Amino acid sequence: MDRHLRGFTGAGYDKGRPLLVQAAWFAVLNLVFVKWWFPTRWRPVVLRAFGARIGRRVLIRQRVRVHWPWRLDIGDDVWIGEGAWLLNLEQITIGSNVCVSQDALLCTGSHQRHSSTFEFDNGPIRLEPGSWVAARAVVLRGVTVGRSGVVGASAVAHHDVGPGAVVTTGAPA
């Protein structure tokens, strides 16, 4: 199939906030939030100010990127490691006692591969309590990682991961 990206419309996608709020978030994200010198304890406060629901005792390290804070729900006692990217064009829900390790990617966005204009094909991500997305792992749109499930280092989860299941690079979900 030939692609005609000039025809892309993004039809039906709502960013969830006015352009001014989006611009303000991108300024705060890139000028302050991701920086090593920005105090860890203030990151949840800033995310809440932009509409995220963040539980207690959440640790968010430097270089963590969040696309839209208003599409983020994090439970209690969650760790998000350095360089993690929460590309949440749609909702990302992270249960309590979850670890998202260094440089992991949670990507709710995709495209319709059979669309000549490559229109969006997005879906939410849910990490159930006690799950772990290990270093440089990827969780793709529409995936739920079940309670105590693990997406191992550098693995890609493109289907749901059952409760207690472990996905590694040798056995992708």
Score class of each variant (00 low, 15 high):
Met1Asn: 11
Leu5Thr: 13
Leu5Met: 12
Leu5Glu: 13
Gly7Pro: 01
Gly7Gln: 14
Lys15Glu: 14
Lys15Met: 13
Gly16Pro: 01
Gly16Thr: 06
Val21Asn: 02
Ala24Leu: 15
Trp25Gly: 04
Val28His: 04
Asn30Tyr: 14
Lys35Gln: 15
Pro39Gln: 06
Arg41Leu: 14
Arg41Lys: 13
Trp42Phe: 15
Arg43Asp: 05
Arg43Lys: 15
Arg48Glu: 13
Ala49Phe: 07
Gly51Tyr: 04
Ile54Pro: 00
Leu59Tyr: 15
Arg65Ser: 12
His67Gln: 15
Trp68Cys: 10
Pro69Cys: 06
Arg71Ile: 03
Leu72Phe: 05
Leu72Cys: 04
Gly75Ala: 06
Trp79Tyr: 15
Trp79Ser: 10
Leu86Val: 10
Asn88Phe: 02
Gln91Lys: 11
Thr93Ile: 12
Val98Ile: 08
Asp103Lys: 11
Asp103Phe: 14
Ala104Arg: 00
Leu105Tyr: 11
Leu106Ser: 02
Thr108Gln: 02
Thr108Asp: 02
His114Arg: 14
Gly123His: 07
Arg126Pro: 04
Leu127Asp: 01
Gly130Gln: 04
Ala137Gly: 07
Leu140Asn: 05
Leu140Ser: 09
Leu140Met: 13
Ala153Arg: 07
Val156Trp: 03
His159Gly: 11
Pro163Gln: 09
Pro163Leu: 06
Ala165Pro: 02
Ala165Asp: 12
Val166Asp: 02
Val167His: 01
Pro172Gly: 08
